[in-house]
């Protein structure tokens, strides 16, 4: 006898959230839809006791802590969930090493997608170049990002606006227009 397995609500949500995260990094500059609004689903999809996490919002910190993750300062964290991102945060994020680029951090931040500063992105995952509007980030954010990273070292940025998500992996070159 075989029973068709059905994913639980948690499993279905994390699977769909991860699908959005995966495609947002595979196709930088394109906006993808997550199943719900907010960052909690990203915590559910990615974070567990193997992670070191920094959260600026207390609710998210509580959720991340309950997964068993270590709560640490941003310079030690492999996942940083930030409501607002001071430019100085980019200086202290983990960037990994040439030997282990995977040690670089993932920054998940709130931003306004499709309005704000005009940017042009090029790199893997982008067919030629793509222009996007991203607001809610401090001035000099993208310039600082370019200064602190040297490929293949760097960090990934996931920008969340409600249920929408846009990814900027380290391989993407961002020009402010």
């Amino acid at each position: 006898m075989s029973v068709v397995p059905v994913p639980s609500a948690f499993e279905a949500r994390s699977n769909a959230a991860f699908k959005a995260i995966l495609w947002s990094l595979a196709r930088p500059g394109l906006v993808h839809e997550m199943p719900e609004s907010g960052m909690a689903q990203i915590v559910e999809a990615l974070i567990d006791r193997e992670c070191a996490v920094h959260c600026t919002s207390p609710e998210l910190a509580h959720l991340a802590h309950n997964t068993g993750a270590l709560m640490v300062a941003p310079e030690l964290a492999d996942h940083v969930f930030a409501d607002d991102v001071p430019v100085t945060l980019l200086d202290c994020l983990r960037r990994g090493s040439d030997l282990h680029p995977d040690d670089g951090a993932t920054l998940i931040a709130h931003a306004e997608l499709t309005k704000g500063a005009r940017l042009r992105m090029t790199g893997p995952g982008i067919d030629g170049a793509v222009e996007v509007m991203i607001g809610g980030l401090p001035g000099g954010f993208w310039q600082r990002r370019a200064q602190v990273m040297r490929y293949p070292m760097g960090f990934e940025i996931l920008l969340v606006d409600g249920a929408r998500i846009l990814g900027v992996p380290r391989s993407t070159v961002v020009e402010v227009l």
Partner: peptide, 12 residues
């Protein structure tokens, strides 16, 4: 979750 985290870095 571990494979998801690694897939993110592999794509990046």
């Amino acid at each position: 979750r571990e494979i998801r985290r690694k897939m993110i870095k592999a794509i990046a």
